[in-house]
Structure formats: structure tokens, C-alpha cells
Design a protein around this nucleic acid. Sequence first.
DNA 1: AACGTGTGGTAGC
DNA 2: ATCGCTACCACACGTT
Length: 979
Amino acid sequence: MADDISKSSNQRSPLTTNYLRSEKINVNDNNEEPFYNASNRFTNQSYFNKNLDIVYENPNLNIQNGTEKKDYSSRRTYFEDKAAKQALSDSVRREAYGKDKPQIFNNLIIYVNGYTNPDRSTLHDMVVLHGGHFSHYLTAKSKVTHIVAENLSLKKRIEFASYKVVLPKWLVSSVQAGKLLPWQEFSLLRTNTIGQTTLDINRLKKQPQITNCNDPDFIQNFFANSRLHHLSTWKMELRQQFLDSFNPVMIPKTGEQLTIFHVDFDCFFATVAALSSTTIKCDLNKEPIVVCHGSKSSDIASCNYIARQYGIKNGMWVSQAQKLCPKGVKLVCLPYEFDKIKEKSSIFYKTLQNLNMFNMILPISIDEAVCILIRTSLNNHNDELICERIREAVFRDTEGCTVSVGCADTLILARLSLKLAKPNGYFTCMKYMKDSPLFWENFKNDDLPGIGRQLVSKLNTYYPRCNNLWQLRNDASIESLKALLGNKLGSKVYNQLRGKDDDEAAKLIHDPISTFERKSLSIDINWGIRFSKIEQVDTYLERCVEYLIAKLKEMKKNTSQVTLKVMKRAKDAPIEPAKYLGMGQCDSFSRTNRLGIPSSLQGLITTELRNMFRSLSCPPAEVRGIAVHFTKLVDVAKYRQKRLPFQKNIILNINETNKINSPVTPFKDVVPDINVTTPNRDNGGNLQTGIPKRPVKRVLFREEHNNISHKSSPDEYHSDLESPRKKMQKMLDRTESSVSKRPSIVNSPLREIDTRYSPSKEESSFLSDFPTRTAKEDIAYDTTQNSGEEYGNGGSFNNNVANVNIEKNIYEHNNKRLLGLSNGDSIRDKIESDELSSQDTGGLTENDPKIFTYGGLVNHDDESNFKIMFQGISGTEEIMDSYENWIYSTLHDIPPSDRDLIILEDFIWSLLRTGSIHTVIRMTQRLSSILRNFSLINKKNYNGNQKWEVVLIRKLIHILNMHSNWDDEKLPTDFPIKY
DNA sequence: AACGTGTGGTAGC
DNA sequence: ATCGCTACCACACGTT
């Protein structure tokens, strides 16, 4: 966790530095009122240094350099005088009252921030009378030696990041002890240095905890306190460490005789908490001790063996555990000591290494390792001796933590032996025990690894007479086990009951590298998740992606598949569950999408997830948990563009389609026929909720209405001050518009786009299956005309959907647009006649700035002023909506009009010209998935469907291929065409 | 048969 | 108050 914090702060370092500097300078006595106005922020450093010195001017310390004083402004002299007077009065007081007190605070300069207990003036006296200096101002970190605070706001915590910030208790305890205690023991701020901090229960209580999931720091704060998050991340870190440092030569070969030592701490968290607790005195061997956050519905992370005697178990709620305690016995609740735990664990692993006894040490978890010894005739050690050696060494090195060791020659037997060894012991499974009730009768059904709550209850129901594993072993045939637990698990359990490792377990030993290799990356939070508006979900999703991408980049991987899982309040569950901010009873829904290209682009992935969330149709207020998984991870180094998941079964006859020239159906009047209730995997989740899967009208992102390619001289330095939404927008802008310039940097497989690009002759002829324009023919084009029978109903793509428009500050181009048809077929005739015969009905004239511009007619120096419009709208999401609706409305008998398709193509080209290939990819994928869905629920082929298939393959895929750098990774456009 | 998606289960304290 | 994570396996069920 500490790593996560440092990572995120590293990312923000340019901002933080700036922010901190200006903030600190602005801090005055009240910590609020700006001392200098903002324009002074970046004046040169020496100015500040001089300036800052005065605040700490203190005659007793001889800090002040008298010659510099003269340079100060009157304002600074005021502070100087005030500080001097204060210091003088302090020293007088010290003379008067502190003479007989130990001067333990010599050379300290203390600044007290905010409300404290004991209060500020008490602390002031305490400091002064014990020889320290008290600063009333905080303007430079160089002179104040410590800040005393109890409760820092997040802002302050960042601001004070580089200070020694301590609890008032440090002063109090030091005075009581009569000596200066190490401040680290009372540090308020978490640091990354191992062993530096000891968490104090008061400190944990006072720390402001973020419980609002809409807070930008919610995720970080939650993770900092989540035991399960720590367990998971620690585990993955250990695995990575193993991979980084492991010598493959040590891997045992199949057939080699092994001895396995399964080592595990006894109630790890509880032991560490008890050993490091300074405030609460407790005896691990006498009192029931648990580790938890709260007092009622708080999970018990770990409990000692006294508590276990009362029936208390890990995972139980504190209230429940309290009831189990006999009368008069008080349950001792200790806070988590994550830093200490991490520290003890790394000592543990080092100790195992240093024993130099094992061929391989496999990390199982933060406190659990499997040590493997390859038996040869040469190393005929005594197993029990080794167990004791391990226990002694760990106990010594961790200063009081006990481990238990289970020893056997298979993993399963070692694990079961470990159960017998606990607590604080070891057990070696001798040969004669392997098939003896003496061994097996000791275990309950739930002692089998891989058998959890659910499966235990299955076993208990199915084999009610089996109270221990020996009975189960005799009663359960392999067939009945398979029938009950499934094929794989059934045979696994059957083998386990006979002390044999299954293939999966053996893989851990014989192929640890692939076992430990990370195959996915995810973030799950099911606590504190409460939304009211979809915008909050959108923002939250973005933060999840931000978190994941940081990790992804660290791993040098991209993801090609994302899964969104939403926990939705169960129908009859109360709005607020028993557990504070818990998830309560939920139904879960998930959706998986493939990205066209393996990516680590925040904007792309976030957008995808937002769409997926909408497709799950879960009201924001019902969401109780959200998980985002990156599943198919691809190595950036070995990166190759993967084929887009386009539909391959194209069912149409191109020539036939070319002759289709049907009128456009009024867009508004057509209700897309997609709310089909046939059960299939695309609507399955929604059948449960009774909500149509894909609402035709989607909720739009308000902030995204503005533009998709607007570039406003991005100021990197300040960008983090903006809302995540704006950052996201900038990210989108950057990635979309910079692809053309820096394709390699953004991992884009797409080569630089020539902004003056227009289809070559060859390409045009390739495209000739479909109405196309070339750069050679300029035809005035009226985007809004709606006269004529075909378009007369006012619902055509022309005026409702495809008002493609490039706005530019300078319109100095040929108004005539290029309408190219490679041959003089009827379609072209038709279109041309449409174009030429159309009367202007409020449409565009030659002087109208909304006229299109294509080819080389654009002034590229002013590219930044482009604003791409589509149907008179410019927000990406709105455009996508419009585009989708148009597709839906023309999927059936009445296909999209050729003319509208040309407008679409125009739009695509203008996107490409401004570097927004990203959007083109999205549009292509969207079309692809609409067609896929459509064909899933419609067995019949419709004209519209067929025509769109042609658009997809002959147009969009082809256009993307023209922009692909890798010939061998071109998307196939030559699909077998069936009729 | 092989593949894809959605769901469910488990492990660690 | 409270910090109910996360990687991975297996399966059901559908499609290719």
C-alpha cells in the first residue's frame, strides 16, 4: 500500500511541488490568509530563503543574520519583531519556571498545527520549559524541526509531507519519561521507510477517514486501510519478487523425492498488533485479542488462540465475537499494523533464505511460504530438526513472532500437517500416517484446501455421516465426488484424501514461473460505494482505470480485454445494510469487452467502461460495488496489433447491394427492433432486471458536449488541478489528436496520418464497391436539404444525423465538396441528381461557413482550431449516440441511404485528418458489435443489415487498414461473401 | 472440439 | 461507524 501511495504522489510531483510551494509561502499565522499574492509565487528562490529566515529569527538560537535584516520589507520586519518578542518572552518564562526541569527539548523548534490535546498553550509551556523553542508561524520547513498535530486534513498532509509531523503525545511522553523519545514512534504521517512508523491507536482514530466514494482520494484511502487489499497486493508483490530473483535451475524435476515444509505464522496480524501495541497492553497468551477497525460490524482480520478457544474466528464481526466471550472477559481490539506486518514478513522471507537449507522457497502469502527440499542420498536431514531450526530462526529474527511448520512429502500432506502443528509447533507427516485414521481423523471437511464455505455445506449435505476426513475418504467414491463437486474438483478432493497432489498443485512446484506469472489485473471495491448520479459512476470508473493503468504501465503491459462487474443491491435487501457502508446482499452483473487494440490509454478504456456500465442498466443509486478487470494482458515489448474482433460471416451480395437505393426512413419514426427478449448472452443479465439491454437513448456526458478535437494549449503543469473529467477530456484530445504525430509514443499501431490524405486511385477503385468520392470532383453539397420524396419526411440522415461539419476560424476554401463515384452507375447518377436538383431549404450556400472542406484544401497550420461536427453536434458521446441510433434505425428492411453513407465517410475522413483515428476505431467497433448483436437475435437477413456489413468491411475496415503500419496485421477485408 | 462470456468459488488475515 | 481484495480456476452454456 505504501507503494501505491508513493506511486500516485510521484505521478503528481510536478503539480505537488508547485502547489506546495505556493501554499507554504502563503501560510501565515492563521494558515489561511495569503501572505503574498499569487503573482509572487514563482519569484526566485533566494528571495524566499531570505524572506523565510525571519520568521524563525530567534535571538537565543543565533539564527538571524543581522545584515540581511535590512533588506526586509516592513511586513517582514513586523513578523521578525513579533517572533523575537515571542522568543524573548519564552526564554524569560524558561528562566523563571523551567530551571528544575530536564532540558530535553534543546535544539527543537516546534510548531503546533490545529486543535490538539493537550491544547496549544499547554504544549507551548511544555516545550519552552523543557528547553525547546516554540514557533507560532510556519513559513519554511528548514527551521522548524517538528510539527505537532493530531488531525491533518488531506491538504495539510500533503503540504506537510516533508516535515517531521508528530503527535502531541510525543511531547507528553517525553516529558513523562524525562528524556527525548524517538519522534518516529509518534509520527503522524505514514512513510515508506520500513520500520519507521509505529501506528498509534489514537492516531488511527483521529485520522480523517474518507468514506465518500466520490472523493478523489477515496480509493487510496480505502486501500490504505483494507486488509484484503494488502493481502492481495502483497501476495502479487511476493510472486513478482520470486520471478525477479529466482534461479530456474532450482526447480525440482518430476519424479524427484521432495520434502515440503509449509511454514505459516500463528495468527499473524494479531501477533504483530499485540507485539507493536504501545498504547494497549495485552498478553497474547492470556486475553482474547482481535485485530479490527471498528466495534460492531467490523470484520475480525485475525484473532489469537485464546479468542479461538471461545469460538471466535477470522472474518467474524466484532459484535458477534464479543458475545462469544465468557462473562467478565473483555475482548481486546487492536488496530491494524500494516507497516509492521510488511516488515515482519520481509524479515521472515529473508530468514528462510538465510537458512540456506532449501532448494526453493515459494511464497504463498504475506505470512506463509512453502519451502522445498530435494531429497538425495547426500542430504538425509532430520525433518524435525529443520522444522525447529525454521521456528527458532524466525522467532529470533522477527522478535517474537511464532511460526508453525507442517512437513510432508506432498503439498497437501504438508498443509494438513501444518493444521496439526498450530499453534506454535511443527508436525511431520510420517510414512505410516499417510493412510491411517490416526492422521486423517484429525481433520474436518473444511480442512481441505480448496474447499470453502459453499463446498463444505455441499459435502455435509451429501455425506451427512462424515465428520472427519477419514470417514469421507472411506465413504466418498470418486464418481460421487465428481458428481457433487464437478469433474476437476471431485478428483482433486479424491486425490487429496489420499495424500496426493493434483496436477494444479504440482504445477506450483514444477512450473512456478508460469504459476506466478500475472495474467490479469483488477480493482474491486465493494465497500463505501454509494452513487446518486451516473456522472459519479463515470468519474469513479475513470479513477479505477487511472489506478489500473498506473500498474499496467509499471508492468509494461497493455490490456486487450476489460471486464466491468457491478454489485447491485438485491431486490429485497435494505437500502443500508447492517454493516456501515457495506454492500449488503447483492446481485452481480458483469460485462466483458475486447478492445480493438491492446491498449493502456485511459480515455479509451474509460469510455469503454462507461458504455459497459450503461449496458448493464443498473441505476447508480443501486450500485454497491464496482470491479474493473483487465484480463488479456499483452507485453508491450512483444506488442503486435491484434486483429479487431470483426464479424467474419458476411452474408450479402455486393452487386445486389449496390443496386439498393432505397429511401431513407425517417429516423425519428423508426423504433429500432432490438429489444428482443430471446434469451442469449447479450441480454441475459437484463432479462433478470427486466430492463432492455441497450437503451436507444443513452445518458450523455454533459461535459463532453463541447468538442472532440479542440486543443487549448494544454498546460501540463496545471493539468492536475482540473477535475478528472477535464483531465479525461484532455487525455482524449491528446491521444486522439497526437496519434498522427507521435504514434510510437502512444503505443498506437497506426502510422502517421497524412492530413492531406485522400484515397489513391487504387484505393478508390477498391472502394468502388460502394459509393465513393474522390479528390478530383468537387460538388457543392447541401447537407440540410430535405426536399424530394425520399428525404421529404424530415427524418433523413442528412438533416438529423449526418450534418458533418468542420468549423474553422478561417474559411478560405473551395465550397464545392468532393463527391466521387468511381463509375457512372445508377447510384452515382442518383446522388448527383439529388445533389443538383435539391433546392436550398435553409441549407448551406457557398458563403455559408458550414460547407465541407476536404483534401488539401485545409490550412493545416490552423488545425488546432478545428471542431468536428456531426449532425450539428460535436460531443463524442452525442455523436456516437446519433451514429448508433442511425444504424439501429436502418438495420432492417430499409437500409441507410447511399447519400447518408457518403456523409458518414466524409465525417470519417475529417476525423482522420485531425488525428482522431481513435474515434474511427470506436465507430468501427461499434458498428461491428451492433451487427454482431443484430445477427445474434435475427436469423433473417435484412437489407439494412447487409448494407451495413458492406460499410463495415469495404469502408471502415479498409480505411483503418490504410492507416495501419503493419502489413502482416491488416484486418481481413476479403471475407467470403455468401448470399 | 475449441472457443467465448458470464458466473461462482476460494485463498490469505 | 468502517475500510467486504483480487488472481485464478472451473463450470455452464452458447457459438464457431
